[in-house]
Design a protein around this nucleic acid. Sequence first.
RNA 1: GCCGCUAUAGUGUAAGUGGUUAACACGCAACCCUCUCAAGGUUGAGACUACGGGUUCGAGCCCCGUUAGCGGUACCA
Length: 498
Amino acid sequence: MTDKVRVRFAPSPTGFLHVGGARTALYNWLFARQQQGVFILRIEDTDMERSSEAMVQGILEGMHWLGLDADEGPFFQSTFADAHRAAARRLVEAGKAYYDFTPKGETDDKNVKERIADRARLQAVTGKAQNPFRELPLAEARQRVETGEAAAIRLKVPEVGVSRFDDLVFGPQERDYADIEDLVLVRSDGHPLYNLSVVMDDIEMQITHIIRGQDHLTNTHKQILIYEALGATVPRFAHLPLIFAPGKVKLSKRTHGKVVSVTEYRDRGFVPEALVNFLALLGWSPGDGQEMISPQELIEKFNIEAVHKAGAIFNFDKADERDWTDPKALWMNAEYIKTMALERLSAMVAAQLQKDGLWREEYDQERREWFTRTVDLLRARFRTIVDFSIYGRPYFADDFAFEPAAVKKNLKDERLKELLPGLAEQLSGVEAFTHDGAEAALRAYGEAQGVKAGLLINASRTALTGQSVGPGMFDIMVALGRERTVERLRKAIAVVGT
RNA sequence: GCCGCUAUAGUGUAAGUGGUUAACACGCAACCCUCUCAAGGUUGAGACUACGGGUUCGAGCCCCGUUAGCGGUACCA
């Protein structure tokens, strides 16, 4: 490896980072880090109408959150439009491209796909005519352009032969030149088109490996033609299988909502490494069955040639609030929450509580240890950081709601109106308010009252947290402390039997 | 229409150069733990490897065909 690896992630400025784009960015980043190469970010804003600073912000935010910081950039493709136009003109001068004076056709109301098919069917009978301007003498063409006549610039594609390249993921690819039209490089209004722009920029930025979505696979042949016309070295290509929504349909924000946006994962309590881990495994695996892989390990183990060829489905159920995104991603996030360093988790939870107005300065002062211990107690059954604010609310705040189902299940027994205050009384008299101390007191009280301990325990859980599930009851009591425990047990009689 | 890519349980992935009951994870179900479960443990259901041929003693793996899905095909990116 003599030349330093240089890769780029080149998204359109759509206002947010798409999970598919995030995976593409991730694979580029992994490859760059592994090869000690350079990772570049370039915004493909050729389509001027669709771009603005704000549209780029979401992408930057998403990448930064995931930890995929670029070594160079962001660069903006539109900045280089003049160079692209100049290159196209050079190709014309060199006889590798030509001016096409055909008036720009009217676009009817049919969709693109239909128009293309119609034209193809027509050509099947007519026979494909060669562009009449392809062989127009250069001097004549130049003169017409100088008089102000509008002309697009098209690349001259060889009439016979095949184009070949070896894709790192998809293997050997070939395409007949006869199947490739003389592509437009620059529109008649002077606007350089995508295929020219990417190639020019990739040459300029000395990109060695182009890692991108499979939707660019067949067009790669066209781009190679441009590289060759320009006399540039053709880089290596690695196309990535697409990520689909359930039903193998295109994953789009329009139809699938925010699940496709990376910042949504941040906002809904994902640990960035968890999403990175999940995304990495969507189309690639280390082969040894390992699933929990840190970014550092990913860098070591990642192998572009082991990337899958078949598209993957990003599984989620729009109707299910709990499974708002892929269940496996959620599971993975829960694993990270369970196993990550407690200090870091606590910091993330603290930020979340601050955001939701549940934070108290003392959690970082005299109750710091309590706070960390509580986070540790709760993390076993939470799947996102946001869960700490929602399901963890009773632990961090005194105003919390009673879940109707929990009340119905655990606070139905009318006897509880007497038992709960009684239990509160008992607990306030316990000398050591510890897990075992509280348990002993509760069981003794249950026995004295002739009720099963389970009734009191389950009722207490709901009385203390409003929920029917959670950590072991006595752990909850200790976490809340004697005072709050006693108070909540007494107040809960208001909801008994409701 | 034409060109191309792909095809292993519901989902994500395994199964070096063809070799035994197709493995793992998520999800799902049941059971256990028991004070709850959305935690933990155990077990289980779920795939005639898209379909049809062929080569072979033997095919998820090789060959041919079919089908389906997807992508491309544009003065979109």
